[in-house]
Design a protein around this nucleic acid. Structure first.
Lengths: 348, 348
DNA sequence: AGCCGTACAGCAAGCGCTTTCTATGTAGAA
DNA sequence: TTCTACATAGAAAGCGCTTGCTGTACGGCT
């Protein structure tokens, strides 16, 4: 069958304990012995049995990264950054860690399932990215799970997600509210008074915070919002397309459309174009996130840049204990307004 | 400390063996006993110890998905599809599997590292996506690793990657060559004779195959290729931008630019625009993959659609043993030419 | 010469689970 | 009633590794 530690030990003429110590490098071993062991390992093509090792040592080298939608670059960029900080030779000598990303699809059940699976694997750390669902029962269940994880010694980091109080989780939160507000204020500053808003799915913190920022800006400038100006939809292109048509139907006099994110904004642009409207001459468009493709839209998208890669990298380092957690366990990551061609003065 | 099987057994007044059997559901247990056990599990918030279980049963519920760049939707879409077929209640009753995606960053070392890590975890299956590096030594090393994995009972599936002979791996290969040829033939059919080509990184099967298809098309139509017409670069926007400028510098009379993929094509479009050239009036542009954003480019990108989600889903099912492997262990997945606004007749 | 400290190496006891084999109780068959 | 068969439950032997503790040998010290 497969080669075991004992086989290597036999071949190197040492005890299994010695082989283990050579492999882990955490105990003095004479150079000559080490060489003999490594030679045997090599010759037998020995690969450590992960489960056995994890069981005996009561630790694991698994690190989980939860994302809502792996096909969305928003998450891909963060996940990649987290992983790059974790994969390499990190904390302990030769401590290769298996950084794995899990796709929840944005559903509460899958999120909980993955959390349990990671708990079952005794993961060394878990990073949760992106907004959280706001379903009360689910939130409580996740919080309980996170607490259980941190209690068991798993480091939990939230990246781009609101803090989870009393769970021991460290949060790097995006300032979605502030970004949303800044964006809408930019539009208002250009002279817009009738602004459509394409919000993300209901019951999501990201959706709510961005919308709140938008409304705060309107309120601050004495603009009364028409309830018809807000439409909810998924975070994808098609939703943006359809929502824009709906918005146009409800109020053809809108001069700007603010989208929940860049992908949605792209759909909005397409709908506007297909409706014979020019951007930004007839209608201005704004997105959120500043994903790589946003600058290639024509005209280039006005949006709020979120430092996804930086935040992900930092989350990764914190998860590995390579960087101190922010004071209070909470840090707010701000976005930066990127004014580009898709926004301009309203017509007339 | 943490709750163990024995704790549950004690509370339910049964033996650990019985608890294990209830949890695995693979042995008859009286209904009343089962209820008692389940109740105890619930009350104690017991979570199975994955490593211990994997060790004792000599199996694992881990499935690995290797991708070159997780921030690239090309891989994200495939990975998501694979995962969706794996995550759910799959093969065995209650058989929750942990589908994890590993980001190799396109480097041979990380690919090998992850493969070893997965081997160490005794993964149930491994799916490798995207093109392979063509470094000889590395290829041999990967092949050896794959063989070792399949021999150990791990199912190995290649998705969008050329077959690996004699490794026991099942391959769902993209017809990059055919797609590349069809695309260039479309351009030739429009009247183009001077075509620039922005190839991907050297030493990658995807890069090579697409380029070969392109050249085959040229050859078939008696067009002699100027070596200056080909530039290599990374699979990202910036590389496309720079390569296009380089191409224009080398030969300003080019009437079309074929890019290695859509992302690169977007960069090409930007470079063309910044150079004051219109698409497709002055220069036609073509991409590859048909990623979601490609239809939103202005003008919309002519490209070859690869059924990423379908291929990924199929790979997932094959990996789970839920679908039979193709005959011979190799299936070719074809692309479909999508003619859109970015390609037109050459000027003059 | 006698002692002690140091540097290695091995023994053996688990880690928490699965699973084979065995034991027990009960129901139906003879 | 006695025997056999079946349905459950338990005992216990590992799965392959880690690690605390126990040697053993050797060099330097007094």
């Amino acid at each position: 069958m497969t080669v075991t530690l004992a086989d290597v030990a036999a071949r190197a003429q040492v005890s299994p304990a010695t082989v283990s110590r050579v492999l882990n490098g955490n105990y003095p071993v004479a150079a000559s012995t080490r060489d003999r062991v490594l030679k045997a390992v090599d010759e037998l093509d020995y690969v450590l049995n992960g489960p056995a090792s994890a069981l005996a040592a009561a630790t694991s080298d698994l690190v989980g990264i939860l994302v809502n939608d792996i096909a969305d670059p928003f998450f891909g960029i963060m996940a990649g950054a987290v992983q790059s900080e974790i994969g390499g030779p990190g904390g302990r000598a030769g401590g290769e860690r298996l950084a794995v990303v899990c796709n929840t699809g944005g559903t509460p059940e899958r999120e909980l399932t993955y959390l349990t699976l990671l708990q079952r694997q005794r993961a060394a750390a878990v990073v949760l990215t992106g907004g959280a669902m706001e379903d009360g029962a689910h939130q409580a269940a996740v919080a309980a799970k996170l607490r259980r994880l941190t209690e068991a010694g798993t480091r939990v980091v939230l990246c781009g997600r609101p803090p989870a109080p009393d769970t021991g989780a460290i949060a790097l939160t995006f300032d979605n509210r502030g970004g949303g507000r800044e964006l809408t204020e930019h539009l208002i500053g250009l002279g817009h008074r009738r602004l459509g808003y394409i919000a993300g799915p209901q019951e999501r913190t990201t959706t709510r915070h961005r919308l709140e920022g938008h409304r705060a800006a309107l309120a601050a400038h004495g603009i009364e919002e028409d309830p018809r100006w807000t439409v909810h939809g998924r975070y994808d292109r098609q939703a943006g397309y359809e929502a824009t048509l709906e918005l146009l139907r409800r109020d053809p006099t809108l001069t700007a459309v603010v989208a929940a994110n860049d992908t949605v904004a792209l759909g909005a642009c397409a709908a506007l174009r297909d409706s014979g409207l020019r951007i930004p001459d007839d209608v201005s468009v704004a997105g959120f996130d500043d994903l790589p493709f946003s600058i290639d839209a024509v005209p280039a998208l006005t949006t709020v840049r979120l430092p996804l890669a930086e935040a992900g990298a930092r989350a990764g380092r914190v998860a590995m204990g390579r960087e101190d957690a922010p004071v209070g366990g909470i840090a707010t990551v701000r976005g930066e307004l990127m004014v580009r061609g898709s926004s301009g003065r309203p017509r007339g």
